[in-house]
Amino acid sequence: MDYIKKNYFLYLLIAPAVILTIIFKYVPMYGAIIAFKDFSPMKGITGSDWVGLKHFKDFLTSPNFVPIFMNTIKLSLFGLILGFPVPIILALMLNQLRRAAIKKNIQLVLYAPNFISVVVIVGMTFIFLSPNGPINHIVTSITGEPIMFMSDPGYFRTVYILSGIWQAAGWSSIIYVAALANVDPELHNAATIDGANLLQRILHIDLPTLKPLMAITLILGAGGIMAIGFEKAYLMQTAMNLPTSEIIPTYVYKQGLQAGDYAYSSAIGLFDSVINVILLVVVNVVVKKLNEGEGLY
């Protein structure tokens, strides 16, 4: 108590963030109870009949479960595997630039896509990959016929993942660039005197510096495998690519807001969250064993 009284201003400083977190993150958890009820807006949450795990069983035994679940896993897992090393590589490359003006201009170009809205990104994707777009203009000149990127289910994941990497990789590299800026230049100078080349200095100086950040980023990324964004997948959906584009978040939206089955959609969303928590714990344990005890917690 003496410490709190002495540093009360620090607690006042974080109080707004704590209050907002409680209001917008913890209080809404009460609504998750409708996943276990036959929810009716007229009866309300407390007045609706309790059905237990019925909605969970309906989803797990539904013919839609396996394809939707696998689509979600594949889209997130491939996105994590392909997207995880890109910001690290960008940061290592930026760290080698010595002219500040050139480095700032390149960073501006790399960071800019992050500030483009998802709607605009998807619109650009449809324009560039349309049958009459610039990409298909090149394809047609070579093969004689265009590729239906946005309607062929086989191309959906590739387009989704690559466009996401292009948008987020530059911004994600900021934390790695900041970490590399704290590396003592004397380490590189000493390594150079000892005959180490650029690759050796990166492997033995830069990468060990980034190792804790890489572990945390990997854990958070793996823990959010099921928490894939809804907006982009939904906007990129067409009637033709649904076999690979229908994922849990878009299915929850359609069942809850379009079909009005709030209890069923809440059960699916809660199932999704539970899987995320399990993945977060498992990946953290694995990373701690492989990273000499260093993990997220």
Rank of each mutant, 00 (worst) to 15 (best):
A91M: 06
A91F: 04
M93E: 02
L94Y: 04
L94T: 05
N95G: 12
N95K: 04
Q96L: 06
Q96H: 07
R98E: 10
R98A: 04
R98D: 03
R99H: 10
A101R: 13
K104S: 02
N105E: 00
I106H: 03
Q107C: 00
V109H: 00
Y111F: 12
A112F: 13
N114V: 00
S117Y: 09
V118C: 00
V119M: 09
V120L: 10
I121R: 08
V122F: 07
G123D: 06
G123R: 08
G123P: 08
F126A: 01
I127Y: 12
I127L: 10
F128K: 01
F128L: 15
F128N: 01
L129M: 06
S130T: 05
P131Y: 10
N132S: 09
G133R: 09
G133F: 05
N136A: 06
N136M: 10
V139R: 09
V139E: 09
T140D: 07
S141W: 06
S141L: 10
G144A: 14
P146Q: 11
S151K: 11
S151E: 11
P153G: 05
P153R: 07
P153W: 07
Y155A: 08
T158N: 13
V159P: 11
Y160I: 12
Y160S: 12
I161K: 14
L162W: 15
S163W: 13
G164R: 12
W166V: 14
W166R: 11
Q167N: 11
W171A: 03
I174Y: 08
I175C: 00
A178H: 07
A179V: 03
